[in-house]
Amino acid sequence: MSTADESNALETVGLGIPFEGWTVGRRFRTIGRTITEADITNFVCVTGMLEVLFTNLDYLEHHSLIKGRLAPGGLVYSFAEGLLMQSVMQHTGLAFLGMELEVKRPVFAGDTIHVECLVQSARLTSRQDRGIVSALNDVINQKGELVLQYTAKRMVKAGDPMASIGSNK
């Protein structure tokens, strides 16, 4: 989607983006997150992905075609979603409606990822207090390489995301 220089020039987001902020063509990036050995171990244990590629360092060193402590694509996707949740969905996200995903490169323990987002479509629903947005999410590593790409469709609140804070809504 972009070069490293363009990536650094993108707006870094913080609090949730209401529907009105999801304008077609808008681009932004999240903060970064380093994937650790503990993250990989915890993820594969919790999910049951107890495959030798993720659990056996001797196998990785001596038999695998991929060298290094490999992170499952599901973990990379989950971390990407977490980065988006903490930055653009706070107080505005209503529902995750679907996605198309493609793993482009392996991610290893010690890699730092961030997400670059491009809004592809946005429309209000018939209720007018929410909208449906579709965004292309590029997960980029510390070398500027595209490691995972997915298009996500979400339902988000329209209006001021802070309006219901402190109320019983």
Rank of each mutant, 00 (worst) to 15 (best):
Y150C: 03
V103N: 05
G166T: 04
G21Y: 04
N8F: 10
V139M: 03
T30P: 08
T125I: 00
T92L: 05
E51T: 11
S7L: 14
H62W: 11
F108K: 00
N8V: 13
K67P: 02
I35L: 13
D138N: 14
F43A: 01
L53E: 15
V147K: 02
Q149L: 11
S7P: 03
A38S: 13
T41A: 15
K143H: 13
S64V: 06
V76S: 04
F54Y: 15
G98A: 04
D111W: 03
R130C: 10
V156N: 05
L124Y: 13
L148M: 12
E116L: 08
R130Q: 12
L10C: 10
Y77N: 12
T23V: 12
F28D: 11
T55D: 02
N8H: 15
I31E: 14
L84I: 06
G25R: 08
V88Q: 12
I66G: 04
T12R: 15
A109C: 00
H63P: 06
H62I: 13
Y77A: 10
H62R: 14
F108I: 07
L136I: 09
E61P: 00
D138A: 13
L50P: 03
S167E: 03
G98C: 03
L97G: 04
M162N: 00
I165H: 02
R123K: 12
T30G: 08
I17V: 11
V103S: 11
Q128A: 11
Y77R: 02
A152C: 11
E116F: 00
K104M: 13
I40E: 02
A4Q: 14
V133M: 08
C45N: 14
F28Y: 15
K67N: 01
F28Q: 08
V133G: 06
V76T: 09
Q149K: 10
V107F: 05
L70G: 00
Q149F: 12
L10Q: 05
V119E: 06
I17D: 07
V88R: 09
Q128V: 09
H114W: 13
G74M: 10
E61R: 12
F96C: 04
L124F: 10
C117L: 14
F19A: 09
G144P: 04
E6V: 09
A38I: 15
T112W: 09
E81V: 14
K67F: 14
L136G: 10
S134N: 11
V76Y: 01
T55Y: 10
F19Q: 05
A122K: 02
E116P: 07
V103C: 12
Q142D: 12
V115R: 06
R123W: 09
K104A: 08
L53P: 03
V44G: 01
E100P: 07
V88H: 07
G48S: 07
I40T: 01
H91K: 10
I17F: 02
G74V: 10
N56F: 13
G48W: 06
V24A: 02
